[in-house]
């Protein structure tokens, strides 16, 4: 283990000063600027921007997407972690790589993939049209592409933890006659709850903030398929910067909540 010490030499002090200055300029300033601009015309203008029907609709749509995607993703993440960390089977490594794939693929590519599958000219397009099912440029498409983009988020928090913890406790519970669900509820879940919470919060932040993939599949129909991040872009292109920043501040707040949960988690681990 390495021990952190107070920077003693002038060189060390300079390194800390450079690091702090760069981070303030490069990370803290963009963060602060969002709120500075959102509130630049006062609290009342801010509230009227948030309460604008289009903005409210975007917030509502984004909430629906998150409410559908996040629980599905949590179920997937737990299932993947349980399968990979608690069992041995051929192809485990490939499965783990597959879980990580959405993480390294541009959301734009994800959007294009979905369009080529469900779009009018896509593989399933003719069948969907014949059955009058609208996936693209509608809510199902937005949900599906968000599921793609957020797929690894819960699994990558829970899986390494379950691997590190080992399965002795669960095996003991099984030996003592506990059923699968009992083992999961009484042994596994209490052990992974913080990592699960963090993964869920990260997944929510990502689902709520997804832009590239959603912008391909949503069709940007104002007041219909405009999620909150798309609404930010729309307001910006309408030259309504203060409105764009007000909408962005809602997304930023969700991101800050995610970070607060992470800090709590780190403090508990330490």
């Amino acid at each position: 283990m390495s021990a952190a010490t107070r920077p003693a030499s002038p060189g060390a002090k300079a390194l800390v000063a450079i690091a702090a200055t760069l981070t303030i300029l490069f990370v803290a300033a963009p963060l602060a600027y969002i709120f500075a601009r959102a509130f630049s015309q006062g609290w009342q203008v801010y509230m009227s921007n948030i309460l604008n029907p289009m903005t409210l609709h975007a917030i509502w749509l984004t909430s629906i997407v998150a409410l559908v995607v996040v629980p599905l993703n949590v179920a997937f993440g737990i299932a993947a972690a349980w399968a990979v960390a608690r069992h041995r089977f051929p192809g485990r490594g490939i499965l783990v790589t597959m879980i990580e794939i959405p993480f390294s693929i541009s959301p734009i590519i994800a959007g294009i993939c979905y369009l080529l599958l469900y779009g009018r000219q896509g593989l399933l397009g003719p069948w969907l049209q014949a059955n009058d099912i609208q996936v693209m440029f509608a809510l199902p498409g937005i949900i599906l592409v968000t599921m793609f983009v957020t797929a690894p988020f819960v699994a990558r928090e829970v899986l390494p933890l379950m691997q590190a913890q080992g399965s002795e406790q669960e095996q003991a519970a099984v030996t003592l006659g506990a059923s699968g669900w009992q083992v999961f509820r009484r042994v596994t879940l209490p052990n992974i709850k913080w990592a699960l919470l963090y993964g869920t919060v990260l997944c929510t932040a990502r689902a709520v903030g997804e832009f590239g993939g959603v912008s391909v599949v949503s069709g940007n129909i104002r007041g219909q398929t405009n999620t909150l991040p798309l609404h930010v872009e729309l307001l910006f292109n309408d030259l309504n910067a203060v409105g764009a920043f007000a909408a962005a501040s809602v997304l930023t707040l969700i991101a800050l909540i995610a970070l607060a949960v992470k800090s709590l988690l780190d403090a508990r681990r330490a």
Binding site: A83, M98, Q171, V174, S179, V183, F184
Partner: peptide, 27 residues
């Protein structure tokens, strides 16, 4: 020894194939 292998692997594969793999194959 631990139960739930078929259920958990099945869920994982179903999600990955439907949400990740098939769209990439379409591309």
């Amino acid at each position: 020894v631990l139960p739930g292998f078929t259920l958990s692997l099945g869920t994982t594969l179903l999600y990955l194939v439907l949400i990740v793999l098939i769209p990439i194959v379409a591309l």
